[in-house]
Design a protein around this nucleic acid. Sequence first.
DNA 1: TTGACATATCGAGTTAACTCGAAATACAAT
DNA 2: ATTGTATTTCGAGTTAACTCGATATGTCAA
Lengths: 107, 107
Amino acid sequence: MLFMEPIDLFKALSNETRLKILWWLKEPEKHFPKQQAHLPKEVSIEGGVCVGDIQEKVQASQSTVSHYLNMMQKAGLLESVRYGQWTYYRRNEDTLQRLAEYLKTEI
Amino acid sequence: MLFMEPIDLFKALSNETRLKILWWLKEPEKHFPKQQAHLPKEVSIEGGVCVGDIQEKVQASQSTVSHYLNMMQKAGLLESVRYGQWTYYRRNEDTLQRLAEYLKTEI
DNA sequence: TTGACATATCGAGTTAACTCGAAATACAAT
DNA sequence: ATTGTATTTCGAGTTAACTCGATATGTCAA
């Protein structure tokens, strides 16, 4: 993520479901109990949760959740790692901190 | 402004023109030269700029600008003071700082 | 009280976001 | 190769945001 488009970030944050996802991903082990069940134990995707687990919790259609995650990633809020047939999403803390800083100093 | 609705704030920030207004209002004397021309000198509305001056700079219709300012105020980004036939808008720094803090700690 | 000006509100057309189910793609295992 | 599962992409209907011109409201000055 080379630059940050504040408007895309604010748009991505302007939705209750997406905010919840971000919030849940702050403590994935707490909100997604069966976390990383598909991964062999030598592989670990720090803080990552797969789309299906998120979808189950979010109560929106699979395509909607996929679309949300994709737009959050494009904005820089999330990053994704693919392992086999699963895509794991986790927070991009760097962007969040930078956005907070931007808000505090540049806006 | 007793509480803060983060989603309304993020929505209000999701627009280039509105971001610009907020940014210009950070240094009103710099971006709105004929500032407070209508006010008698014993009255001062700290950092406030009237709708017409903002509209002139923004290059959008009068109704659009009025609508933007109103929604920004409802979200808590701006506060307004009426003097005679003019409405002066200025930043609500408190909300902005609290939102930055919220982003840093709660999201 | 009439006219002029600043701002707010209304109504409506246009554009973008939301949201879904269906279809396509990607991968794993048999 | 075929089947099953995870995810993405597509197409489309619905809802919300954008944006304007026109009208209404509020205020001042003559």
